[in-house]
Each structure stands twice: as C-alpha cells, then as structure tokens.
Simulated scan of single mutants.
Amino acid sequence: MQFHLSFPISPLVPGIQHNQQLMLMGSCFAEEVGAQLTDHRFNTIINPNGILFNPLSITRALTSYLDGKLYTESDLFQHQDIWHSWQHHSRFSGLSKEAVLQQINQSQTTAIKAVEKLDWLIITLGSAHAYTLKENSQIVGNCHKVPASNFDKRLLTVEEIVTSLDNVMHRLFFRNRKVNILYTVSPVRYVRDGVVENNLSKAILLQAVHHLVNKFNRLYYFPAYELVIDDLRDYRFYKEDLVHPNEQAIQYVWEHVTKYCISPDSQELIKEIAEIRKAAAHKPFNPESEKHILFLKRYEDKVRKLMILYPQIDFQPLLLSFIR
C-alpha cells in the first residue's frame, strides 16, 4: 500500500550556484527559504521591503528598484506615534521618522544596486487578496494594524496579476539580460480570509504564475505549495496555529530546493557547509578539554580550505565559530 503521494519535479537548468546573486521577495515563506540559502553561504538579498503578500505590492516594490526611487517624508504616515510606510513591512516602522527613512532607503539602495546584477529573482506569492486605502484606492503592502474601516478588501484577478508582473518583468529583462525568475506559491494558509477564500486565492495565484511561466523562457516554477499541501498533506507539518508550515516542513521543502534547484557543484558545497554549521552549533561538555580543542582546530582548517577554494563566499562568520 502507498501512503505517500509524490510527484515529479523538473530540475532547474541551469541550477542556482554559490557565485550568483540572488534576491528573494514575497511572503514569510520566502524568508524561510532565504534564511536557508543565507545559512549555506549563498549571496542573498531577502525582502528589501520586508514581507509582501500580494503580487501587486511585490510588483510595485520591483518597479521602485528599477526606477531608483528613494523615499521621502511624504511616503510615510504616523499611527499611534509610530511612523510607517504603506509599501513596507512593520520591521521598518519606528518612533523616529528620520530613522525609519534611513532604514528604508538603506535597504532600497541595496536593492537598486543589485537589481541589474541579479542572476536569480525568487518570488513567493502569498495571497491574491489585497487591501486598498479608502481615501485614495492605493493598494498597501501592509496594514500596520490600522483599523479595518480604513480599507477595502478585494480579490485580485488573474488578468491584473499577469499584466502587472508581465510589465515589470519586461522592464527587468531589458535592464538585466541574464536574470532568471523562479516563482513559488506560499503554502501558508491564510485562514483569516476564510478557508474557501484562501483556496480561491491560491488558485488565482497558481493560474497567474503558470500563465507567465509558459510565456517566458527564463521563468520557472518550484512547487513549494504542492510539496506541503499535496505531498506532506498533514497538520502535523504545521505549527500550532495550523497555518504556518513547521520546521519539519520547511526542512522538507529545503531538501527539494537543494535537489532540484541548486547546481550539482553547489549541492556538494552545501553538504560541507551543513556539516560545518552542525559542528559550530556543538556545545561541548568541557570546552577546555584537549579533545574539544582538536575538534575546533580540525573544523577551523576545513573552513580555511573552503575560503581558499571559494574566495567569493564569506566564510568569516563560520571561521569565527572555531577560533578560540
């Protein structure tokens, strides 16, 4: 008897490599995958605007990087003594208007400089539901706990998602002739919208993404959504909120990302780095023992060898874990 549903996944050709520049944008699941890539020493920029859920907010952020936009005081608003940007996650919010602008524009400048050099743009779409300000019909990237009475909620159509992403991709491809785009749909279940409504939202995102992937040569789709929803298919792979995939699920998806999206050479390097990271997390019973000192020296030597073989990768944080 078979109790596990599996399905074929098409590998990326060419695969993602350590010497490439990556940018990840989208939902909180993009941050989970981005953290794994960063931990394994890939050159990543993760969510320059913070977490964004709907495709139109992601498109607007990308457009701002291509336009070289820097934010000003007029782009901020104050709510309950806190300064926010409608286009940014609350991680950028703060009591000081000047500090908020500085943090936003520092991240913005990094994204502006990177966008023309990217090898991979990885976009994780979270929801087709969007919130617009009643006062000007502007779609917001984050509601910042402003009362719901200030917003209208609507379900984006496949057509407007496709049109928005299509337009920004044409601009991106014109500026960056080498960039590849990898789409995923987040397996996070936005049950606050309603279970039926969440499924409808995901269906719209999937239809839009597959329309785009079938249209462009440099666009790819990775089935993170299907791996959690159809392959794992069990609430034991979710956190207590029954909404967010837990660590087991994230690790399962990461294993598939490694197998199907990463180049063979980088897969081997990932294994070496994973071993070193595990050693760095080791807590010795006696830190002063000769055995532990030899253990540290052995892994210090391993990291130094990798630093020679891969000078473009920053191994310094790992090296410091083994230097007494």
Rank of each mutant, 00 (worst) to 15 (best):
M1E: 10
I9V: 12
V13L: 12
I16M: 10
E32Y: 13
V33P: 00
L37M: 04
T38L: 13
T38I: 11
R41G: 05
I45M: 12
P48A: 12
P48H: 07
G50D: 01
L52E: 01
N54R: 02
S57Q: 05
R60N: 10
T63R: 05
L66Y: 04
L66P: 04
G68E: 09
Q78A: 14
S85W: 09
S85L: 14
Q87T: 13
T110K: 12
T110G: 00
K113Y: 03
K113Q: 12
L118P: 02
L121M: 07
I123A: 05
S127V: 12
A130V: 13
E135K: 15
V140D: 00
V140Y: 03
N142Q: 04
C143F: 07
K145V: 01
P147S: 11
F151V: 07
K153F: 00
I161W: 10
I161C: 14
T163P: 05
S164V: 11
V185D: 00
P187K: 02
P187R: 03
V188R: 01
R192M: 08
N198V: 04
N199W: 06
K215T: 15
K215H: 15
K215V: 08
R218I: 04
R218S: 11
L219D: 09
D230F: 12
D241V: 05
L242A: 14
E247W: 07
E247S: 13
Q248E: 06
A249L: 06
I250P: 01
V257K: 00
T258P: 00
K259Y: 11
S289E: 01
K291H: 13
I293R: 14
K297T: 09
D301N: 13
R304V: 08
Y310Q: 03
I313L: 10
L320C: 03
